[in-house]
């Protein structure tokens, strides 16, 4: 049995857990804990401490695992462990929270440094009235033209499928290039 791994990363509350939940065939194995600080508690009630874990079985010989990283910097010791052997990664950005853009860019650069694998940026929460348009986000985050920045709604399975497919196409392109 061959297993391959993709990592879903991004700042705190950017929608990583929801993204994996939308596509995983198993109930996501989530290591969420109740939020401990007041500031974080206002964002959501529980947060991912170690990782989220989702699975997509392709056939008897092949399984895709999706790992979601914890968003807070204090858990970044986990990131490198999760990045080991990944096929590619998705950087989730909450399009409606510009205060997290700098953090998203920093996480992106950190993961790029871990491994030279393809990645895409998912401009999540595009259904939010305050969401920045994907084109504006590309400039704001200084994402190079060759990198895919995809509008996304993590709770919508089709949207999540599109992001994963685009990442896989990028992986294929790199193999062919």
């Amino acid at each position: 049995m061959q297993t391959v791994k993709m990592v879903i990363t991004g700042p705190f509350s950017s929608g990583k857990t929801e993204f994996i939940r939308s596509i995983s065939e198993i109930e996501v194995v989530s290591t969420e804990r109740e939020i401990s600080t007041e500031a974080e508690k206002r964002q959501k009630d529980a947060t991912t401490v170690a990782m989220d874990f989702g699975r997509i079985t392709v056939d008897d010989d092949l399984v895709l695992y999706l790992f979601g990283t914890p968003g807070q910097r204090r858990f970044d010791f986990m990131w490198e462990i999760l990045a080991e052997g990944m096929l590619g990664f998705v950087v989730m950005v909450d399009s409606a929270k510009p205060e997290t853009f700098r953090e998203a860019k920093s996480i992106l650069e950190t993961f790029r440094a871990y491994a030279p694998t393809p990645y895409v940026v998912a401009a999540n929460k595009q259904d939010h009235p305050d969401a920045w348009a994907a084109d504006d986000l590309r400039i704001a985050l200084r994402i190079e033209d060759g990198v895919k920045l995809l509008p996304c709604i993590a709770k919508d399975k089709e949207s999540v499928k599109n992001v994963l497919l685009e990442l896989l196409y990028s992986i294929l392109e790199e193999m062919e290039g």
């Binding site: 391959v4 056939d59 092949l62 990944m86 096929l87 896989l168 294929l172 193999m175």
Partner: peptide, 13 residues
């Protein structure tokens, strides 16, 4: 990055 064959990626797609 792991050594993955093209056919694996195509199967995932």
């Amino acid at each position: 990055a792991p050594q993955v064959q093209k056919n694996v990626v195509n199967k995932l797609i």
